[in-house]
Each structure stands twice: as C-alpha cells, then as structure tokens.
Nucleic acid binder design. Structure first.
Lengths: 209, 209
DNA sequence: CGTCCTTCTGACCAATTGGTCAAACAACAA
DNA sequence: TTGTTGTTTGACCAATTGGTCAGAAGGACG
C-alpha cells in the first residue's frame, strides 16, 4: 500500500512520520510556515528531503497534519471545564492547566500563534468549526455562573480571551519575558507567573468583594 | 549625494521612503520577515523592485529601519507613566493607551509580535538596551506604589506582562477574536474589551478590597 | 540649449526552494 | 534463491527570490 495513507502501517513508517512531525513542530513553531524549509525539517528529522517527501506529499501537508493533530490537545483544557463543578475552581483549574501548557508545550503555543498572527490562512475553517462552538458552549456556562451570582459579573468571551492571552504570553513571548525579567527570575518565570495570574483571575471572579 | 543616506533630502525621496516603509509595515506584519518578499513590498509601495532597492540596500535594511523607527512610538505609553501621578490612574491610563494602540496600530503590534515570536533575531539588542532599562525603571515605580500601599501588592514585572498580553491580544490575535466572538461584537471588539480589561486591572490593583 | 544629478527600468544572475523520478537498496516471505 | 513490497537516495527541474547593473528617462539650472 502507499505510504501516504491515513494510518502508518509499518514500524518504520510510524517512527519516521513521528520524527517528521516532531521536527516540523520544532521548525514551524520557531520560524513560521513560510519561513521554514522542507530541508530544515528533513535534516531535523534525520532524513533526506526526498525521503521526507515519501511520507508526506508536501510541506503544506505536514503543516496541516500538525495543526490538526494538535488541536485536540490544545482544546482539551477548555473541554475539561465542567458546568457541574464549583465555578471559581473550574475556571481557576482551567487557568492553571493553560499556564502549565505554556510551560510544557511552548512550541505548540507558538505554532498556533504564528498561524493566527498571520491571518490563520490554514486555520480559519478549524476556528469556526471547532473552536467557536466549544467557546460558545463554555461561554454560556460562564454566563450562567455569572448570572447566578456564583462568580462576579464578567463578559464570558473576553474572560476567555484574557485567560488565553495571559497564559500563552509566557510561551509566545518567552524571549521578551526572559530578556526583561531580572536575572533571578529569568531562569524560570513560571512560578511567579502562576502566582500573579492566579491572583488576577481570583480577584476578577470572586463575587461581592 | 547617494540615496541611501540617513535623512532623505529631496521630496521624491521622502515620499518614496515613506511609501516603502508603509508598504513594508503592511507586508512584514501580515507575513513575517521571512514570509515577505521584496517584490510584494515594492508592489504595495507602487515601485519596481530595483527602484525600491535604490532607496534601501536590502530587505533586511527595510526591516531594521521599520523596527527602529517604530520603537519609540511603541514604548511611548510606558514612558508616559509618571511616578508623580496617582498610582491607580497612571496604570489605568497606561492600560487604556495600550489598548488604543492595539486598535489604532494593529500592524505595528503584529510586527513586533512576529519578531518576538520567532526568537527576536533582529530585536535582541533593542530588547536589552532599550526595553529592559525602561521596564526596570517603571517596575521600580510600581514597586514603590505597591510598598506604600497605594495599590494592592503586585509583582511589578508580571503586572506589566499582563498589561501587554491583554491589550496586544486584540491586535495580534484579531482573526481569532473576531472568529470566536458573537456576530454582534465581532465587528468591533474594542468597547467590550476596554470594559473587561479596565475591570480586571482595577480589581487587581485597588488596595484593600 | 546642454549639463549634472537624481530617479527609474529591463535584463540578468546566482542561490534557494518545493517537488519529481528512476533506480538502488532493504526486508521478508515463499 | 527469487519475487514482492516498502524505503532511500542522487540527480534533476522549474519557479521564486534577493540583489546587481548598465543605461535610459526626468528634472533643475545655467
């Protein structure tokens, strides 16, 4: 059977497609789609360019596969926010998970950031078909919590935006954060970041106050 | 005299260099440095490629000039935050100005975002020589306000990060914001954004509470 | 008019890049 | 061993791209 099919069959195919995607994540996330070359990805994956193109039909195909494959991972934390839980704790857990992801998966964050920043040419469909429905659903949940007085009144969509921006900032603008922070913190900005972000949303959401 | 000198002399030079920088801002900010071509910039500026290269020696030179020329504008709002003013109002004014800039100058925001996102290859010097000293200075001011109990205790650096991320998010991730927001708000997210962001920082910074 | 300087262009070039292809090589089963 | 299938490569190609250059056009001034 042909190599470019949906699921890899042989061990070599599994190993190589995995290596390619890993390498592509590295390259695409740090240089953007247009700024990356197939050769860079091939070299990073330990393959020759024609060999890489034996597994994926084109540079764009690698990119699409990457984005698609990562999307679920990326949206999982928001999925995990349940209407049944304690409102403040659900949201704070979401914030915490997002910040952890910025720390553990900065390349993924930058990959999406690069894409969105440049007008999301290969992501517009996904944005409206996957992200928007999910956000609509969770915004409604937040709205209901807010209306019930279980958290302070907030604009649910902008609350989500502020969670995304605050947490992803530490992955996407990592160089800036480290360049600006005093020596003592530049090594690992995350502990203080966690405290700060936690405080911000706690104050924002605690009712009454 | 040669055309590539510091200050444009003739009217034609003024007009064309300005057109080139304007075009370059458009192109670089939406496609990143590596993703942009000299031809695109030339076309957008209404010039031929050789003619553009008569005014700037290289693609990189345009990029450098752009970044350098924009830096002052970009840092002006932070400069304007004065230790003598009312702490809460100084910070809130800074937040407001930054959000206005996201609305009025989204291309500039994206230009810097693209650069930082890709490791700030042409910005590292600037980051440490211009941005860091300024941030250090203003962080000290915030620190003193905080210590004097005039605003709630905050980590000054991370407070600045959160101002940057929250405000610039609306420029940098514009496509996503509009894709996710309900129809009614997608046309102009800024009024609600302003309310939300204002509330966040006001709650964060109001002492006691 | 002619002269000098600036502005502009078409033709060109070398390097890079995404992608192809025929053929070599490996793995393994019969 | 041989046949079959999956894997890898060197050589190659067309398109794009950053940049050059010689000279043509334009403008200002005597």
């Amino acid at each position: 059977m042909t190599a470019n099919a949906r699921k890899p069959r042989t061990r070599i195919q599994q190993k190589n497609t995995a290596a390619i995607l890993e390498a592509a994540l590295d390259v695409f996330s740090s240089r953007g789609f247009r700024g990356s070359t197939v050769d860079q990805i091939a070299k990073a994956a330990g393959l020759s360019k024609p060999n890489l193109l034996y597994y994926f039909p084109s540079k764009e195909a690698i990119h699409r596969e990457l984005l698609g494959g990562l999307l679920d991972t990326w949206l999982a934390p928001l999925h995990a926010m349940k209407a049944e839980g304690d409102p403040l704790e659900e949201i704070m857990a979401y914030v915490r998970r997002k910040l952890e992801m910025s720390r553990e998966m900065p390349r993924e964050s930058r990959l999406f950031a690069n894409e969105v920043l440049q007008g999301a040419p290969n992501l517009e469909g996904v944005l409206k078909e996957h992200l928007k429905p999910l956000v609509d659903e969770k915004a409604a949940v937040i709205q209901s919590w807010s209306a019930a007085g279980r958290i302070a009144p907030v604009h649910p969509y902008h609350l989500l935006f502020s969670i995304w921006s605050l947490t992803q900032h530490y992955a996407d603008f990592d160089v800036q954060v480290r360049a600006v922070l005093p020596q003592s913190e530049a090594g690992d900005p995350f502990p203080e970041a966690a405290r700060h972000v936690d405080a911000m949303f706690r104050k924002m959401l605690t009712p009454g106050g």
